[in-house]
Write a protein that binds this DNA or RNA. Structure first.
Length: 171
DNA sequence: TAAGTGCGTCGTT
DNA sequence: AACGACGCACTTA
């Protein structure tokens, strides 16, 4: 069942303002800062349920840690109900890749028991609604090249660089 | 080595 | 039926 989005809340960071989306089940989306667009659309009208405010506090801390290249202390529940079964399988696997570690699309495919679905894994990574916290940036091409990133390759290199998993030298 | 081409594969739309 | 955030074999330079 797909829950409705209940709130969109901004998260100011040294890298810009991210936007977090919540449903009654948990964090369901995270958007990168939009170049040129300062705070917008964020619903900050005070009618935010206490539970979501609590989750938001966790997300702010988790994002700060992640952007600093360190593993988040604690995450709120993640609502991935908008994803297909396959996508949820892939995203769950991404959550098992520790900070500073990487896997290839092929390795992820093997890890979830679908060794032939390599390309489909790429699609699922691209459909990840919660980048950074669900570390799709830690998936590289088999040849150790950068692969792709829906949020822009600059972000992928930055995130990996801060985790010490990418040398600016190559790629 | 580096870069380009073609094809197999499979989940999603 | 078409399209990928892929992987691999193979060809050129």
């Amino acid at each position: 069942m797909r829950r409705e989005v209940v709130a969109h809340l901004p998260i100011p960071t040294k890298d810009g303002e991210f936007l977090a989306s919540y449903s009654s089940a948990g964090l369901c989306g995270l958007r990168f800062p939009r170049a040129g667009k300062p705070g917008r659309g964020a619903r900050t009208d005070g009618n935010i349920p206490a539970e979501i405010q609590r989750w938001h506090g966790l997300v702010k801390q988790a994002l700060a840690s992640s952007l600093a290249g360190q593993a988040p202390r604690k995450l709120p529940p993640l609502d991935v109900s908008r994803g297909t079964k396959f996508q949820q399988l892939v995203w769950a696997q991404l959550g098992r890749i520790g900070a500073g570690k990487t896997m290839s699309y092929k390795e992820v495919a093997q890890a979830i028991g679908r060794p032939g679905a390599v390309r489909a894994v790429g699609g699922a990574c691209g459909a990840n609604p919660i980048p950074v916290l669900v570390p799709c940036h830690r998936v590289l091409a088999a040849n150790r090249k950068i692969g792709g990133f829906s949020g822009g390759l600059a972000w992928k290199r930055t995130l990996l660089g801060r985790e010490g998993a990418w040398e600016e030298n190559r790629g």
